[in-house]
Amino acid sequence: MSPISAADIPSLSLLYKLRKLQPPSVAPVAGATPNHNDRIGLIKGDITTLAIDAIVNAANNSLLGGGGVDGAIHRAAGRGLIEECRTLNGCDTGDSKITNAYNLPSKKVIHTVGPIFDAIRPEKSEAKLKSCYKTSLELAARNGIKTIAFSAISTGIYGYPSLDASVAACETVKEFLDGENGSKMEKVVFVTFEEKDVRSYNMTLPRYFPPNSETSTEQKKASKAQEAEAEAKASQLPDVPTADPADQDHAQKKQKQ
């Protein structure tokens, strides 16, 4: 698969205009604005194909590779990545470390260790997960990284509920972009792969990064026009058959016999 540049990853602004992303079904969170929509990207696919400044690896404490996204990144990067990771002496849960990207199309890899979800103390898991996003973004800013992509951290074998994880991610990214180092980041990309993560981000992103009112109005007008067009086309179509066409074919063949 050809590498995908940051410019080729659709922003929320574009996704709203194309009606690929809908306005929030419930009220946006307090303080949510469309101010960052040009700098938030969303794509479903393989994070190892992104030719951007840094991709974030959902690593384990050893940083020596594992399953899922972690294993895919190590395989795509080649032996140089694990050799550098061996010099880092692991990483604490909620913290992040940076390496070169070797055979990957990105320039750097930021390794962050997500929490195993604790259903008894979910607030502890939430704090660690938010720390993954915060430390990754801070590390990126210190290293001159302007485009960064996150997979859905901890939602795989670590068992973090996808919707709750997307809330923690969006809240932390919004806080960073609103903060003093936010202007250093040109694009923050959320990469989804599994359908549960796709649904979760489609629900959560509009609550933290809603469309502007002009875009919402355009969407409503376009939606009404599409409905009218669909109704007009439907009136010209023949009635829906009440029997299965396959059954009718079978009956006709028997009559001929």
Rank of each mutant, 00 (worst) to 15 (best):
K44P: 08
A77K: 02
L104G: 00
E180D: 13
N35H: 06
I116C: 03
D247W: 10
I43E: 00
A169C: 15
I47M: 09
Y201N: 12
S235T: 05
R207V: 04
T99A: 06
G144T: 09
A149V: 15
K254F: 10
V167K: 15
D46P: 08
N212A: 14
Q255T: 12
T99E: 06
N35A: 15
V26A: 12
C85Q: 02
L137R: 06
K233E: 02
S151T: 09
T49P: 06
T87L: 13
K256D: 15
G114F: 05
A51T: 12
L14W: 13
G65Q: 06
S106H: 09
L21G: 01
D8L: 07
S106W: 02
I55N: 01
T155W: 07
V167E: 15
P238D: 00
G90A: 02
A59S: 02
K97Q: 09
L64V: 07
L15R: 14
K184E: 13
V113E: 10
E171V: 13
C85G: 01
M203W: 11
L21R: 04
L12Q: 11
I120D: 13
V191A: 01
L15F: 10
P210M: 11
E171H: 11
I153D: 01
V240N: 01
G144K: 12
A101V: 01
T172H: 07
A140C: 08
S166H: 06
K97C: 09
L177P: 02
N61H: 14
K196W: 07
I116Q: 10
P24Q: 12
K134S: 11
K124D: 05
E175H: 12
S62T: 13
Q257I: 13
D178H: 08
V198D: 11
L205G: 09
V198C: 13
A246P: 11
P28I: 14
L21Y: 05
G182N: 12
V113I: 08
D8F: 05
I52L: 04
K44T: 14
V191I: 01
S235P: 00
A30T: 15
I4F: 05
A72F: 09
C85N: 09
G144N: 02
G179P: 02
L139N: 08
K196P: 01
E123T: 14
A234M: 02
K187I: 14
P24T: 10
K220A: 14
L63A: 11
Q252E: 14
V113Y: 03
T87G: 03
S125E: 00
G182M: 08
L64E: 03
D239C: 01
E126W: 04
S62E: 05
L177T: 03
K124R: 14
A72S: 02
I47R: 05
I43Y: 11
N202T: 12
A152C: 15
L81F: 04
V26K: 15
G94E: 07
A32Y: 03
I116M: 12
T204E: 13
P115D: 04
L177W: 06
S25K: 15
N103F: 04
N103Q: 09
N212G: 09
D164P: 10
V191Y: 08
R86A: 03
T135S: 15
F193T: 06
T192H: 00
L42R: 10
T93I: 11
P161W: 11
I116T: 08
V189M: 07
T215W: 10
S2R: 14
D197W: 05
P161F: 07
A165K: 08
S200R: 04
T204Q: 13
E194T: 14
